[in-house]
């Protein structure tokens, strides 16, 4: 499997939506090399977060897969729909490709 791209450093807190306290939760996004924390609303689509992460890390959105608890996170999912809790982690995996020469 190809190695992960090591571009970028841990990003600052990203606040796509910035008001209210209880309806926000902190989500860690990690690709084994980098950890980025995001504070987002429960109802915000995770697409925003994934796009922000890809942009920060300089990756093409369709070359990485976001997984939560081992299952694929879709662009339309939100923390609420995935039943996420404060402090949960999204794992970022690289595209898997295989053929064997």
């Amino acid at each position: 499997m190809s190695g992960s791209e090591n571009g970028g450093s841990p990003g600052p807190q990203e606040k796509p939506e910035g008001n209210g306290q209880s309806e926000h939760l902190n989500i860690k996004v990690t690709d084994n090399n980098n950890e980025v924390f995001f504070k987002i609303k429960r109802t915000t689509a995770l697409k925003k977060l994934m796009d922000a992460f890809c942009e920060r890390q300089g990756k093409a959105p369709n070359s990485v897969r976001f997984l939560f608890d081992g299952s694929r996170v879709q662009a339309t999912d939100s923390p609420d729909s995935l039943d996420m809790a404060d402090g949960d982690t999204l794992e970022v995996h690289q595209e898997q490709i295989g053929g064997r020469i």
Binding site: N62, R65, R72, E95, G99
Partner: peptide, 20 residues
């Protein structure tokens, strides 16, 4: 639920490696 892009489908060309 995820989109399949042209990039993914093109892996099905003869001789290409398939992706996840």
């Amino acid at each position: 639920g995820n989109n399949l892009h042209g990039k993914d489908l093109k892996k099905l060309r003869p001789g290409q490696w398939l992706n996840d």
